[in-house]
Amino acid sequence: MASGAVERFDDKARESFESVGQTTVYRGELLRHPVYTRVLHWTVALFFFLALFTGFALYLPSLFHWITPVFGGGQLTRTLHPYFGVAFVLFFAFQVLNWLQLMLWTTADSRWMRNIKKITTGEEKMDPPETGFFNAGQKLLFWEVVCGCVLYIITGTIMWAGARTFGATAVAISYVIHDISACGRARERSAQPPSPSAT
């Protein structure tokens, strides 16, 4: 357990890390996330990309023609998209429960954010020592996804049930909010903030 790599984390961070799951560290490597977290993360990623590509097909007409056949045609794409979305949000909800404690904002995170320019330009090679298991950038991303998922569920349910249930105005507005939320999600996928990971 006690290897040189683990000692990079301060005690507080290591304690919270231990509470997430059992970790076995082999010689020369650090296993940052337990199996449960990794399985959840890959499941979320799978349904995220399925929902993303079915959603893109419906969002942009220029993508409609070649993405929808992959999912079995326009009708099936439209049928599957909500199920992919629900699966994405559901598995992410488990991840929220898993990470909630580690994702709470601390004063160290505010200090990290004030350093954001140095960090993005690569001048600061290391996170400040008191940074916890996740740095402030990761926490911001996490909470942004949480907010996005809440919007997805509300607007998605309205659109899934349709104008006959919730009214034409609700559907017409949901459509815009759903799109904005999705574009935020698609963009931040490539904008992962630097991680303090040692591997």
């Binding site: 419906l58 009708q75 794409t77 659109m159 104008a163 034409a168 459509y175």
Partner: peptide, 19 residues
């Protein structure tokens, strides 16, 4: 070509399209 998303129902001011 219809995918059955029912957006047309919410776009119609006369409440005409039927699913």
């Amino acid at each position: 070509n219809c995918i059955g998303c029912e957006f047309c129902v919410s776009g119609c001011p006369f409440n005409i399209p039927r699913f």
